[in-house]
């Protein structure tokens, strides 16, 4: 990133190649929309390019990148406030109308179920878990992104994991 800051823009391609997938995973985990996630990754890198002079080089690039990504995401969600949010109970009704309900559920692998449970979490909890996933549980860095202490991040992750567990168990019961 230091090279990019000093004007060697070609090096941004290397950073893009290294981080496009985790960044995409973060956005996709948040919105489940492939095209939108790709646009948000693109916008994040455009912002990195635009504000490259603000990268102080002291901290980790990945942390800075997720900080920007979060802002890009927030800008988008602020613009589109309507988000699909259904409580888990509604899923039961929806699925009971489907003839091949059991087949549908059987087809769901454990990880798919987990992804589905993650999708059902409130946005802030989903976000902290995705940051933990893609920031390799570096809670201090996540604290820098979220603007809170390392201890506070741990508590947020703890609460989010508990809720994830609860939603996961509810989904299991529906199987």
């Amino acid at each position: 990133m230091e090279n990019v800051r000093q004007g060697d823009l070609g090096k941004l391609g290397l950073l893009f190649e290294r981080y496009k997938r985790p960044l995409y995973g973060f956005f996709y985990g948040m919105n489940k929309d492939q095209e939108l996630s790709e646009d948000l990754v693109q916008n994040t890198f455009l912002r990195i390019l635009k504000y490259r002079h603000l990268f102080r080089g002291e901290g980790d690039f990945k942390t800075w990148m997720f900080h920007i990504a979060r802002n890009v995401g927030h800008d988008h969600y602020r613009k589109n406030k309507i988000r699909l949010k259904e409580p888990v109970e509604n899923w039961e009704n929806k699925l009971s109308h489907s003839e091949d309900r059991s087949t549908q559920w059987q087809q769901l692998e454990e990880h798919q179920m987990l992804a589905l449970a993650l999708e059902r979490l409130p946005e802030d909890k989903r976000e902290v878990l995705l940051l933990s996933k893609y920031q390799d549980k570096k809670y201090k860095e996540i604290g820098e992104i979220l603007g809170c202490t390392e201890g506070a991040v741990k508590v947020k992750v703890f609460r989010a994991l508990q809720e994830l567990k609860s939603v996961y168990q509810q989904l299991e019961k529906l199987m």
Partner: peptide
């Protein structure tokens, strides 16, 4: 355990 599973959940790749 849940966290470990979550780390393995694949979020796909961009096109």
């Amino acid at each position: 355990l849940l966290d470990q599973h979550l780390a393995k959940v694949d979020m796909g790749r961009p096109s």
